[in-house]
């Protein structure tokens, strides 16, 4: 599974993408974020407060309780600020 990070999430983790193979008990976005947070101090700093995070599965915005089922790409980022 490809994970993409943007904005301050990317800066704290120190990379804009990584390839991961989460275990079978990681079933939804919230579970994935919790599992990723344990990978490094930077991950923990970026991912521990999920109220500040938004996400997309295969390039569609998704709620944090959305199931991962078959997801190829997950993007994790702060709320968007365009325009």
């Amino acid at each position: 599974m490809d994970i993409l990070y943007f904005a301050w999430v990317r800066e704290r983790i120190g990379t804009d993408h990584e390839k991961v193979d989460p275990p079978g008990n990681v079933r939804d976005l919230r579970g994935l974020i919790g599992w990723l947070a344990a990978r490094s101090a930077g991950h923990e700093s970026a991912l521990s407060d999920t109220s500040r995070l938004r996400a997309a599965i295969d390039q569609q915005f998704a709620e944090l309780d959305a199931p991962l089922a078959g997801a190829r790409e997950v993007a994790i980022f702060p709320p968007v600020t365009g325009g």
Partner: peptide
């Protein structure tokens, strides 16, 4: 313009 601000994935630094 209102919807671009909140729904297009951009981040500003």
């Amino acid at each position: 313009i209102d919807r671009l601000k909140t729904q297009a994935p951009f981040w500003k630094r």
